[in-house]
Design a protein around this nucleic acid. Sequence first.
RNA 1: GGAUGAUUAGCUCAGCUGGUUAGAGCGUUGCAUUCACAUUGCAAAGGCCACUGGUUCGAAUCCAGUAUCAUCCACCA
Length: 927
Amino acid sequence: MKELAKAYEAKKYEDGIYKRWLDSGFFKPENLPNTKGRYVNILPPPNANGEMHIGHASGYVVMDLLGRYHRMKGEKTLLLPGKDHAGIQSQVVYEKKIKKERGITRYDLGREKFYDEIFAFCKDRAQYMRGQEKKIGLSADWEREKFTMDPELVNVVLDTFVKMYNEVDKNGSRMIYQGERIINWCPRCFTALSDVEVEHLEQETKLYTFKYDKNFPFSISTTRPETKLGDTAVAVNPKDKRYKKYIGKTFEVDFVGVPLKIKIIADHEVDSTFGTGALGVTPAHSAVDWEMARKNNLPIIKVIDEHGKIHEGFGKFSGMAVNEAQEAIINELRENKLLEKEEDYPNNLSVCERCKSAIEPLVSKQWFVNVDHKNFSLKNAARKAIENNEIKIYPERFKDVMLSWIDNVRDWCISRQIWWGPRIPVWYCARCEDDRDNISEVSFTNDSDRANIKIKKRIGKIPVAVGDKPLVCPVDKRHGDYMLFQDDDTLDTWFSSGQWAYSTLGFPNGKDYEEFYPSDVMVMGRDILPFWAFRMIILSLYRTGQVPFKNLYFTGLIRDEKGQKMSKSKGNGIDPKEVIEKYGTDAVRLSLLIGNSPGNDLNLGEQKIAGFRNFTNKLWNISRFMLLNIENPKIDTKEPKPKTLYDKDILLTLDEKISIITDDLNNFRFSLAGENLKEFTWGKLADQYLEVAKTEGEKSEILNYILNTILKLWHPFMPFVTETIWQEVYGADQLLMIENWPQGKINITSKGVPFGVIRSSISPATFAGNRRGIHANVDLVEGVITKIRSLRTEYKIEPAKKVNVLIGAGNKEELLSENTESIMARARLENLTIAKKAERPDGSVGFVESGVEVFIDLSGLVDFAKEKIRLQKEMAEVEPYIAGLTKKLANKEFVKNAPKEVVAGEKQKLSDAEEKLNKLKEQIKSL
RNA sequence: GGAUGAUUAGCUCAGCUGGUUAGAGCGUUGCAUUCACAUUGCAAAGGCCACUGGUUCGAAUCCAGUAUCAUCCACCA
């Protein structure tokens, strides 16, 4: 006979089991036997510059759970893994690294060398991260692993750029266009950023109220006086009586020595109650002002340059850093008595998401995607796909979030002034002879001091070639040969990862693309919902004409047990490596799955993981015990014939659970499924059925069937321990991973059956005939046992001491008699007498359970006073219950309107309660 | 400013389309250790389901409002 070790030690088995899976080749869909249907999940690529954190782990656990479930259902399952190059972030990380380790900047290395090094760095990190992903049990096809900077993926991405660039509408405007627009500029990263790469930090600033000069008729308020050097207008609310007379006039002012022409314009966006109700318009350094300037045809004056310094042409302020200039301007205004007020004001500071430096809104020439192009409106396409449920979103409420986000989306700035990423496939034309100096300015190669670098001037204003094969530029007779050079910018990372859904599959002609696109599900953190999900949807719809995935599941954030964000500085993070080492992968997986719901954050403490480690061991020991009682473990099992009440109950319950859990998994309710299965395994099976089995004996076949089934059901949740047990029980040549998912005989869902221990008092309507009867009978017997145990504890009867019990069973006589042995064993009884009717024997205490009266012989130990109080207390609980039911049933409206089953149920409850009350009364009398 | 979510036992959370004497885990209390498992078992204590109204025969559940917390978006110059 086989026997398992006394406790499950995850560390001893996990690596071996993973290797076994890998060697089997079944992570590759084409190796799976007898598949029908397919299941595809292109895994979201984490940034290849760090390591796996608990948030990644929580996503992977969901993806792997689904993957394993579908694989067991016999579907051709592909989980395709990969990594993201994470343009700005990786560049920041790597720049810090070379600064620290070698004391150099990227300019010391030059563009090409820097690029090659960072590529190698990412590849190296990717390999490390892959190891961690295997640790969590991810059953992905590693041979298909992709990286967003792999040449074949980059080709797809650039190809999309070209296609979008060539998308021209009737008016000649392109879907991808170059334009001077106000953008978010990070002076540290030295690049433009899209709106989603900017974070807002609340901070205390000062709000200054001042006049431009003595002759200007009124004052304005601002938090950024230094930008006022570029003001070209003052906007007021058209309804504001104070300023009505000025609208349309232009004032020439001398603002701290800088001459400005200020036009007074009207705009109903202006809040007349804020400050003085007049807003200085700085078109070059505020997105809102930029819009006003466009509407009013105002000139644009650039004040701040890409280094965060004041441009030339502003007298003494030129060359100052913004905060220097601010101080200088305020001082001067104060001296000239133009500063009227200075008040504290809370404001949101925009900072770079990656390096946390303050963002400067600047006017700059960048590449944009028109998200609402006439030929193909990306936003309308996305809206339609989501509205029509072509993509189903979990949780559903995120659908509205997505839609409102889509409605507000603006044109997408896709150019970045960084080196790491796919370079924009656009070539300009320059004259070799004349512009050689300019060309050398363009390449940053030999400059080591960033402060001295001049921002590039594009020499050829109009792209002459777009795509990977530049056109040959026409030769200008006057100037001799032309030279082509490529746009220096790289593409926004999201422009690459937005194409992940198909670039990974060998789009447009790859075999995998034919077979596996679109995928079934995408699992992503709810924090990247707007950027990534939207971008994947629009780019996929544009390029493939199909949605990228059919279901979109959002996970929440993992926080610490107090609900705080995990962070390195706070030291409250949970490192998956550590907890896997300590508690085993399966425990970590369960703690991320159970008690977690889509889109909601999860508070996770180590205690929770420890709890699930205990459960892993419990499952191991359940299996250990079952194995000791299984004569001949075999895999091929049909549901055996039940002999006793408890046999019927456990098989029935298992059938129900199969059905419920399958339904839950199909609907992305992992937590419910896991909880349900845990309740069954620990509560129903271990604490109840296995105890009964000890007295009833001869359960070999049933135990084999149950063990076999629960290992399968648990496998997607906790693959390691289940696979280990499976191989220990059924032999090392067997693989649970590709066993068939159990099929229940009953078809119900979690919506049809209440969870937990089913009590007879629960609405009978919920349970149909036989099923209900079996559960109710078991509950009755269990209730009797629990009550006896409870009274034993109350009367402090030694656990070893056996007592005599008399039961007045009424019509339950036969039921209880059938289970005499297990009642006696589990309640520790010496003698058990079951009769139709029973009088309370002297020296005994009694209770009433579902119409059955039970008396425990205490051999004179009864404390009558205490007993009376106990019984009275019980009566006091029943009486208001009866009163409530009586009132309810006396209500004609209730009887008329409520469903028949509900009314019948309430009647039954009432008569049960009344019977109980009567019996309690008799017992008190007999004391 | 807009939006979303949360508010149920000391803690972490279930409770799904209204009918339960409101549940679990952890923690707490008491008892139990050759018997699969102390990473265990048995039993117990602990809750006006945030508040105020409304709909309904019936509300933890639906609706409206209020409060507190959290998150996201937009940004006020």
